[in-house]
Design a protein around this nucleic acid. Structure first.
Length: 680
DNA sequence: AAGACGGAGGTTTTT
DNA sequence: CCTCCGTCTT
């Protein structure tokens, strides 16, 4: 056994690493070396003779999966294949076994993301007129997701969600949506999990096969699992109950997406023999930071009993800073960072977190003005840019010739399809369905061209479209780079950008396309055997946080949500104001649960900091086009005075504050639109 | 079917 | 302040 597998581990870490059979829960506080424990444990299992292929490890992000794979490989020289995200693993299972399940899809199914989902739903709502106003695409999407995620029947979900239309109508919408997905041979994100659960539950013998294949199951960030993921876990657990979950209930910040931290709270009762280990020593932060965070999170009532401590040397006090407005907030932070940089601190040591993406703008302007390098996470995803989505639609149509959604997008956005509108498209889709052939195959066939006789403009246009699509069909699907480059050429993509957008952001769009090609080239280098379908799956399942580049020397700007799992020497949390943090919309009917989740979000932010944390708030914030008087976040007052240095910054001068709003007890404002507002 | 205009609405978003 | 719709116009 490679000796380093067990090197430098504390008592509880060692116990967690060397636990072999039976269920185990590791409650891993922020910065307590969780990743190290999980990776060492995988390496240890392998060193004990477990085959790497018998280990299944599921994470929430690609980044976590990649990191885990790399670190295990560094320890034992080989990385297990089955480390991936929940959705990625499920997609792999379904690619292999979906035929065995009677769900209307084949193994070449396409994965639809939120955008595709929304546009299908919108189309269905429009088709079905006379629905009340409240039936928005997002409501229907939420309804469908809730139905797929839970065990409750449609009716119950509809009542619970206070459905604005009749139960019959909403059920019909959901069923139409499902039919549409099946017609496109597509699945949505929830389906990846749901169909895998069905596969294990309904297909005889499946569970045994999977139990045999995966002897050891590991789940990371267990506090963020939703109902389906929980079901999946239970189905995958074998007779020896070799299930190992790690997480921290205090860092559960995704309940609005269905995550349920009760899953982690009740692991002990789900598995009465479970061994429970708590990792409470923090290796990341100074005592000042950790104490402040501990004091804050103590205010949550639903918690797993634990108390983080550290043996790190102490550093500077946590500071809370008050400035006049959002501009001066950015100015102070920029000066602080620039000053430190002048003393030799690299830019990458600094991160700014905020509650809403809209807040990033002020910082960007400030940093551009002063020439400070920064990387912005979030906002519009690379693969969500319009021109990229257009191109992807073409690729998708090629891979899945039934993909109506992709077809519609192509027709709407490619100049080759100018002059062809909704009416024509829908009639073509119907004709294809009647002919029983996949849409693309039907359209690009000689037969279709022959059927478009005559010299009418429409027939002419359709023949051109058909020829063009035929050219796309004839491109190779592997290697990926050849496929992508071939289709780019065959579609005249770059020239079309010019036609479509004129000079409007043209160079940026061209750059995006170049970047897309070079990403495809990278992918091809890593997976020379992969097909276009594999590539599209990879693209469908990546997120932008994966793009954070810790090597680049730049200040990092991101939301509090995306900061989870990262660490920085110096952290600024901007906009610590009532209404922003906690956010007023999340607390519309301020249930204690909502407030507690916002508090956890703040807790996550603070515990990212290794050496220094600055919590900033302003008196007046420019928001939604108006100046808004802002009160400090009630959470600031929950950090005791002794743990919090209070600074005020005004007219370029910094001074210590002695008195604050929150020296007096906090009284919640009576209405949603509290405070003073005045128009510009 | 494409462009122009006005109104509404605007957390977070691992996949 | 922004962006995203829907509708109205050509």
């Amino acid at each position: 056994m490679s000796s380093e597998i067990l090197d430098n581990l504390t008592e509880p870490q060692l116990a967690a690493v060397t636990h072999k059979d039976g269920p185990m829960l590791v409650i891993a506080g922020a910065g307590s070396g969780k990743t190290r424990v999980v990776t060492r444990r995988i390496a240890w299992l392998i060193s004990q003779g477990v085959w790497p292929s018998q280990i299944l490890a599921m994470t929430f992000t690609n980044k976590a999966a990649r990191e885990m794979r790399e670190r295990v490989a560094a320890l034992v020289g080989q990385a297990p294949q089955n480390i991936g995200t929940f959705h990625g693993c499920c997609a792999r299972f379904l690619r292999r076994d979906i035929d065995k399940l009677d769900c209307g899809r084949t193994r070449d199914f396409t994965i639809y993301d939120d955008g595709d989902q929304k546009s299908i739903i919108k189309a269905i709502i429009t088709e079905k007129r006379d629905l009340p106003k409240g039936v928005t695409p997002s409501f229907v999407a939420q309804f469908i997701s809730n139905v797929k995620n839970g065990d409750a029947p449609y009716e119950t979900v509809a009542v619970e969600m206070e459905c604005p239309c009749s139960v019959k109508d909403i059920i019909e919408l959901a069923q139409d949506y499902e039919k549409r997905l099946i017609a496109c041979n597509a699945v949505d994100f929830d389906d990846l999990l749901r169909l895998t659960v069905d596969l294990l539950r309904k297909v005889p013998g499946m569970r045994d096969i999977y139990h045999n294949r995966f002897r050891y199951l590991l789940i990371d960030e267990y506090q963020d699992t939703n109902h389906l993921q929980y079901e999946l876990m239970k189905l995958l657990v074998n007779e020896q109950q070799n299930v190992h979950v790690t997480g921290d209930p205090d860092q559960s910040i995704y309940s609005w997406r269905g995550a349920d931290y009760h899953n982690i709270m009740s692991f002990g009762s789900d598995f009465p023999q479970a061994k429970i280990i708590k990792l409470e020593q923090n290796y990341r932060s100074t005592p000042s930071i950790l104490n402040a965070a501990n004091e804050l999170i103590k205010n949550n009532s639903h918690r797993f009993d634990k108390n983080l401590f550290t043996e790190n040397p102490d550093g500077v006090q946590v500071a809370d800073l008050l400035t006049e407005n959002d501009r001066s907030e950015a100015e102070w932070i920029r000066r602080k960072i620039a000053g430190a940089h002048a003393h030799g601190h690299p830019w990458r040591n600094f991160a700014i977190f905020y509650r809403t993406n809209a807040q990033s703008r002020t910082f960007e302007e400030e940093f551009i003005h002063y020439g400070i390098p920064y990387q912005l996470m979030g906002g519009v995803r690379f693969y969500d840019r319009k021109e990229i989505r257009d191109f992807l639609a073409l690729l998708r149509l090629k891979v899945n010739p039934c993909d109506q959604q992709a077809f519609l997008r192509v027709v709407e956005n490619f100049p080759q399809c100018n002059g062809i509108g909704h009416v024509t498209m829908n009639s073509i889709i119907r004709q294809a369905e009647e002919s029983g052939r996949p849409l693309l195959e039907f359209l690009s066939s000689q037969q279709f061209r022959d059927s478009q006789k005559g010299n009418s403009t429409k027939a002419h246009r359709l023949r051109i479209l058909s020829n063009w699509l035929d050219l796309i069909v004839k491109q190779p699907v592997t290697p990926v780079l050849d496929a992508v480059a071939g289709i780019e050429k065959a579609s005249d993509f770059i020239e079309n950008l010019q036609k479509q957008y004129g000079t409007e952001n043209l160079s940026a769009r061209k750059e995006n396309m170049e970047s897309f090609i070079s990403r495809a080239a990278d992918f091809t280098k890593n997976y020379p055997e992969a097909s276009l379908a594999d590539y599209l799956e990879d693209v469908a399942l990546v997120a932008d946080v994966d793009a954070h580049d810790p090597e680049a020397d730049s200040v990092v700007l991101m939301t509090l949500h995306s900061s989870k799992g990262l660490e920085f020497p110096c952290v600024f949390i901007a906009g610590c104001e009532d209404g922003l943090l906690p956010h007023s919309l999340s607390c519309d009917r301020p249930s204690e649960e909502d407030i507690e989740e916002e508090r956890r979000l703040f807790y996550v932010g603070i515990t990212r900091a290794k050496r220094a944390a600055y919590l900033t708030h302003v008196k007046i914030r420019f928001r939604r086009g108006m100046l808004t008087a802002a009160d400090p976040s009630p959470f600031l007052g929950e950090i005791p005075e002794g743990l919090r240095k209070r600074i005020e910054y005004k007219d370029g001068i910094e001074r210590i504050r002695t008195r604050d709003y929150y020296d007096t007890p906090y009284i919640p404002p009576p209405k949603k639109n509290h405070g003073l507002r005045w128009s510009y």
